[in-house]
Design a binder for these strands. Sequence first.
DNA 1: GTAATAATTATCATTATATGAGAAATTAGT
DNA 2: ACTAATTTCTCATATAATGATAATTATTAC
Lengths: 260, 260
Amino acid sequence: MSGFQRYKKILDLFSEERSSWTVLEISKSLKTPSSTIYRIVREMVTAEFLESASGSYFRLGPAFIKFNRIINFSDPLVRAGQPFLKKLSNENPITSVNVLARLYGKNVMCVADYKNPSFKNNTSYQRGKLMPLIYGATSRAIIMQITGKRLENLINLENFKSDEDKNNFLKDLKSDRKKGYCFTEGQVDKGLIGFAVSISNKKLGIEASLSSIFNLDDFLLEHEPIIYANLTTYGLLVEKYINEIFEDIKKYHHETNSIR
Amino acid sequence: MSGFQRYKKILDLFSEERSSWTVLEISKSLKTPSSTIYRIVREMVTAEFLESASGSYFRLGPAFIKFNRIINFSDPLVRAGQPFLKKLSNENPITSVNVLARLYGKNVMCVADYKNPSFKNNTSYQRGKLMPLIYGATSRAIIMQITGKRLENLINLENFKSDEDKNNFLKDLKSDRKKGYCFTEGQVDKGLIGFAVSISNKKLGIEASLSSIFNLDDFLLEHEPIIYANLTTYGLLVEKYINEIFEDIKKYHHETNSIR
DNA sequence: GTAATAATTATCATTATATGAGAAATTAGT
DNA sequence: ACTAATTTCTCATATAATGATAATTATTAC
C-alpha cells in the first residue's frame, strides 16, 4: 500500500450501505496496524476528507461536497447536459427518468439525472451511482462508442454467463452502433425500459450517453418515434453545447496564459 | 509537502473559476518539479480523483461525484434535513431559499438547499459553496453555538475592520444566542434578508443551521412571526430526525459487530 | 468521583517510498 | 515526416511511512 492508494483504500471502504467505520475496523479490514491507520485517518480528517462522527466512528468529510460542486459548475458534460434533462423529460410522451452517464473506470456512472415528479417507480439511476457496464441502454450507448483493444479490455473484465452471451452482446453492440441508439428492457430495473443515444467529444475525452427510462406499463409502440426523436435532438444539442464550452475554456486559458 | 497534503495541495488548485490545469501550471504554482507532479497526477488519475481533459489539461475526476452521493445518502444532517427544505419553503409566507449549512474548517458550507422556483434573485447559498463565517444569519446560527477557546480561535482568523466591529459581533452573537434565532440584512447578498436557527447534535458532532432567505422587497413585518415559527418547528424536527438516524446507525453497528 | 477500559497520540529504529534531474519515449500539431 | 510539447522512465539520494510499544487522553461503569 503506497502513495495515493493508501488513502484511496480507506475511502473505498465507505459506501451507502456502510457509511461509518472505526479505526479498528479499518485496521482489520485492510490488515494494517491500527497505529498506522490512526495516523492516516488523522491526516484525512485534517484535510476534511473524513470527519469524526459519534463514538469512535469516522465518516466521509465535507471536502467531497465542495469538490462535487466545483465539478457541477465546471465539468463540460454536466454543464452542457444538466439543463436539458428537465426539458427532455417534459417533451417525452410519458413520464420518464432522464439520465446523463459516463464511463467511470470499469463501470458506468450517472452524472446527472432528472426524474419527472409523477414517475412512480424507483430507478437505479441517480447522480453518482455506479451502474453495470453491460446492462441497460444507458450503458450500452456509452460502450458502443468504444472499439478495438480498449473495448476488449473492458469486456474481458465482465463475467458473461457463457461465450455465447458475450458474442450476442458484441453483436447487439454492433447493430446498435449502426442504428445510432439503444433500447433495453428490464436489464437493470424490472418493469422499466430504457432508450439511449451516445454523447461524445473526442477533444474533451467525453464518452457518455443520454437516456430516458420509462415504465413498461406506460409504453405504447406509437411513443417510440417521439422518444427517439427527442433523444436524438437533445443528444445533438448537448454535444453542441459541450463544444461551445470547450471553446470557452480554450479562450479562457489562452487569455490567462497570455496575461502572465 | 508530504503525506496527504501532497495530493490535497493539487486538488485545492481546482476551483469554480479555474477548473483545469496542466501539469506545468501545477508545477509552477506549487514550485515543484514537473516530473514529480506528473507522477502524482498520474496516481490521482488512476484513482479517478483527476481526469485528463483536452490538450494537456486535467480536471477534477468523477470520484468526487461518487463520494458526494454516498454522503447524500448517509450524512445524518443531509439525510435528516434535506427532505424538509421543500416543505419549509412551501410554508413560508413569501418565496424563499432554504438552506442547511455547517462548519467546514474556518468557513461555513451549505450542505443542502431548496430554492423556490419563483424566487427571482440569485443567492450565494448553493450546496457545496463555502460562505464567510461571520456574515449572514446562516453562519451566525452556527457560530453562536460555539463557545470558549474554539470560538476565540475561529474569530481570531477573521479580519474585522476594527476592534469595535469585533466586539459588536460578539455582542450580537450573545443576544442571538439568548433569543434562539438570527436575522441579518444584506450581509452576504444585497437585497436579501436571512433568518436562521441552530441545528446541533452533540453525539454526532453536528454544528449546523437551518435558514430561510427572502427578498427584502417581498418582506412585510407581519411575516416575521410565521417565519420564526416555521424555522423553529422544522429546526426541532430536523434535530429529532438526526437523533433517530443516530439511533439507527448505532443499532446497525451493533448488529454487524455481533455477527462477526 | 474514581477505577477500569477504550481510544488516540507519541516515540523511534527500521524499512520503504518519494524526489528530482536528466534521458528517453510518446503524442500532437503542422 | 518533422518538430515541439507532453509524458514516462531511470536511478542515486533524501525523505517519509511503518509498526511495535509506551504514554496519554477520553469514555464508561460502578
